[in-house]
Write a protein that binds this DNA or RNA. Structure first.
Lengths: 129, 129
DNA sequence: CCTTGACCTTCCAGTTTATGGAAGGTCCAT
DNA sequence: ATGGACCTTCCATAAACTGGAAGGTCAAGG
């Protein structure tokens, strides 16, 4: 599987895969004799996970930590558990914020007439959340 | 209210407030005779909204669009409604992804023993979510 | 066999969204 | 009037990409 297919399969652009390799987020890919990078299904899973984590606002560094644990199975599982728990807390917080923001937007659109009348007072609520 | 107080009140660092001004995300602040920026409560609300939106993964550009609508009350409310709705969809998606990710992590920590035993198979699940 | 087009490679430059620090002005309390 | 905590601008750096140039590779068709 070359980098283009890997990009399609994982949702991470080829350019970005190379970038991730360059900053050691992922290990150097195996190469064909001619120098093309090749990827295994396991690599795709890893890339998908990175993709998902990044889109949800986790830093590359955070993702790196999780991947380290994933790679080094011999680590104490207490450490894995602690990291997972801390990430879960972060996630809960993000979900709460998103819900609050969603509510603001919902109020906003419900109180707006949806026609051309310009009295849409709910925009005022945006800051409050 | 000077920039330091505004920073504390809004949660946006002073440095970042100046940056937002420099890229026209917010209008230039009023100045004292000596050149210090001053901020009103309304400015703080705006900054808080920006802060919240950014932390949830909305781009500065997206935030800018919403702020534009907020500023220009005379716009058709249909437009406001459309933008709000589109953002709500995005938010729903983000929430769904976070929940999926949370579930993965929960499974992970539940199946881990939390002691020093190294058999923590759930790390394998990370890519799947 | 050779060409054509879609891949791949590296490298360097630019973008977005800040953040850090230097050099210097301001404000206020002692 | 002087120290320290503010503020100012400007320039450099960071993180996480993204685009483009210059050139190598591969598979298909003529």
């Amino acid at each position: 599987m070359n980098i283009g297919e890997a990009a399609k399969a994982s949702g991470v652009p080829a350019k970005t895969i190379r970038y991730y390799e360059s900053v050691n987020l992922i290990p150097p890919a195996h190469r064909t004799d001619s120098g093309y990078r090749t990827y295994e299904p396991a690599d795709i899973e890893r890339l998908s996970f990175i993709q998902r984590s990044r889109s949800l606002g986790f830093s590359v560094r955070d993702v790196g930590k999780l991947l380290d644990l994933w790679n080094d199975r011999s680590r104490a599982s207490a450490e894995v558990k602690a990291l997972a728990t801390s990430h879960m807390t972060e996630i809960d917080q993000k979900i709460a914020e998103l819900r609050s923001m969603r509510k603001t937007l919902k109020d906003l659109s419900e109180h707006c007439h949806g026609d051309d009348r310009p009295d849409c007072p709910i925009l005022d609520g945006l800051a409050g959340g």
